[in-house]
């Protein structure tokens, strides 16, 4: 495990945790918002929005990464301006966050939509007729009803965010010690015939994924009563 103590390895672990800590809450919020709009309101272009949510599933992450480079890279006017103002996106942390957010976007929304469709709008309407504001209704009725789907979606999103390779590989520029995340560092070690380092890093990444799964199981066990009471409805 000594290879994990190297500066590059430490930086990769820190970077991956940072990216995950930013991308997952963002996607949890985006996912809830998207699922809420799609299931609780009727509007034109709903089918189109659902297709848009699925887009990251159907597009290769490498292509998504290239699109970000095209949009924010130094060759575009926007990218040029951003670099000049000292906020580079490509080959820097914001680009990696963007790529990760894009690739993992569908997880939360996709888990929530069927649950929210099945539950319908009646409970929310009941809360409104009882005088609750929209925000209170969301907080006390909608959110508790979707919490398990939300947890599940968030954990899948976390696992995927930590493991994302394709899009990040393009956007990050693979700068050792700066923009190399764990999966990218694993690949770099492997290509340099540093098998021990590569496998220790891979084991660490797997350990993090297992940790999220254990967290989910622990939460489920702890709230088993509430879970069975709400599921049987």
């Amino acid at each position: 495990m000594g290879s994990l103590a190297s500066r590059d390895a430490q930086s990769a672990i820190r970077l991956t945790l940072l990216i995950t800590a930013i991308a997952v809450p963002m996607n949890a919020v985006f996912g809830i918002a998207a699922a809420w709009f799609i299931t609780k309101f009727d509007f034109r272009g709903k089918a189109f929005l659902i297709t848009l949510i699925d887009l990251p599933f159907s597009i290769s992450p490498v292509v998504a990464g290239l699109c970000i480079v095209l949009l924010f890279g130094a060759n575009s006017a926007l990218g040029d301006w951003l670099v000049a103002s000292g906020y580079p996106i490509v080959f820097a942390v914001p680009g990696i966050v963007l790529a990760t957010v894009f690739v993992t976007f569908p997880f939360v929304a996709r888990d929530l939509i069927p649950v929210m469709i099945e539950q319908g709008r009646a409970e929310e309407e009941a809360a409104l007729t009882l005088g609750a504001t929209g925000w209170r209704t969301f907080r006390t009725v909608t959110l508790p009803n979707i919490r398990w789907a939300l947890l599940y979606g968030t954990l899948l999103c976390t696992a995927r965010a930590m493991g994302e390779f394709g899009a990040v590989a393009v956007v990050s520029g693979k700068i050792r010690g700066q923009t190399a995340t764990m999966p990218i560092t694993i690949e770099m070690f492997y290509n340099e015939y540093l098998s021990v380092a590569a496998f220790s890093m891979a084991a660490t990444l797997t350990g993090l994924a297992l940790l999220t799964l254990m967290l989910k199981t622990a939460l489920e066990l702890r709230h088993a009563d509430a879970l069975s009471a709400t599921r049987r409805h």
Binding site: A122, E123, E125, A126, A127, L128, T129, L130, G131, A132, T133, T140, V141, P144, N145, A226, A229, T230, H233
Partner: peptide, 28 residues
């Protein structure tokens, strides 16, 4: 809808499934 103060009973009752009977009645 909030200002109307209309007591509404829904077709399938729409009770808050994660709340007890007491909490349901106290909600308003």
């Amino acid at each position: 809808v909030q200002d109307r103060r209309a007591g509404f009973v829904f077709q399938s009752y729409a009770l808050f499934r994660h709340m007890t009977v007491f909490e349901n009645i106290a909600y308003g």
